[in-house]
């Protein structure tokens, strides 16, 4: 009986948590008209989210592209066809690796910081103080963070894509003997072959980044707002923010890929 009660309690908490996240997202997007009043804070958050996390994101992206090219290139060389290395690296980076790497790094750096900051405010009565002053914590704290990450995540992803492909190109030339010209020509061809203004591989990847950014901000702010019990509660909120963000990034990544490449063709 105790086991069932514990499972029931856990399920109830999970459902309540999910409901809180969805409700928070709806309330934040419903208060978009407050954004001009939060411009200063929005720019600060965008700077922290985008510019300050850029070095680590780009280093990881460069090495991810290099590893991708190296691993793929080793197998392709067995078949004597390394000419498609640029194609594979570019498509994988833009469709999946770029947004994924950026999302995970932003969840670990910016998302955790958001949860810690808001969680500390929660346990030290600052959130209550805002409510008492009739300042809605959602439009004051959550909205600027949500918009900042929704904007910065695709921008950082675009740079990650570029640097990742560049990293792959270097490895292709130095370790696999594929010339830079051949690598970049095949990468370019793969990306523009759809004939659209913005290649599908790019816009799907950037859309993923937009969803990831929104998810990280909402989940992290939600974890912070639900923190209770002092420093321990803040620590648990940070843990939950990063864990849930990464899980949702993977789940949404699959759903978006499935939608764009299977359902919508």
């Amino acid at each position: 009986m105790n086991l069932f009660a514990a499972i029931g309690q856990m399920l109830r908490e999970r459902i309540e948590g999910a409901g809180f996240v969805v409700g928070l997202f709806l309330r934040a997007t419903g208060s978009l008209h407050y954004l001009p009043r939060r411009l200063r804070f929005l720019l600060d958050t965008a700077y922290n989210a985008g510019v300050r996390s850029l070095p680590v994101t780009l280093i990881v992206a460069a090495f991810a592209g290099a590893i991708l090219a190296l691993q793929t290139g080793i197998e392709l060389r067995r078949f004597g066809d390394t000419s498609v290395l640029g194609t594979i690296t570019a498509l994988t980076m833009c469709r999946e690796m770029g947004p994924f790497i950026t999302g995970v790094i932003l969840a670990a750096t910016v998302g955790s910081a958001m949860a810690a900051e808001i969680g500390t405010m929660k346990v030290s009565d600052e959130i209550t103080a805002l409510e008492v002053m009739s300042v809605d914590p959602v439009n004051y704290l959550v909205l600027p963070r949500l918009v900042a990450l929704a904007v910065m995540c695709p921008l950082v992803t675009a740079l990650s894509n570029l640097i990742g492909i560049y990293g792959g190109g270097i490895v292709a030339e130095h370790n696999l003997g594929v010339s830079q010209t051949l690598f970049w020509d095949s990468a370019h061809e793969a990306l523009i072959s759809s004939g659209m203004l913005l290649p599908k591989e790019l816009y799907v990847g950037l859309f993923k980044a937009l969803v990831y950014g929104t998810t990280i901000a909402t989940v992290s702010c939600s974890a912070g707002l639900r923190a209770e019990g002092g420093a321990l509660g803040v620590g648990l909120a940070v843990q939950a923010a990063v864990r849930d963000s990464v899980i949702l990034i993977i789940v949404f990544g699959f759903i978006i890929t499935w939608f764009f490449y299977f359902l919508a063709g």
Partner: peptide, 29 residues
């Protein structure tokens, strides 16, 4: 929210917003 605009509340620890200066905290409402 309407009722709270007519009320002031002093918290035990002040509950000031950390990234705002003293003047900005007071100016917030």
């Amino acid at each position: 929210m309407t009722l709270r605009k007519r009320m002031g509340y002093l918290f035990q620890n002040g509950a000031l917003i950390n990234w705002l200066t003293v003047a900005e905290n007071v100016a917030l409402p």
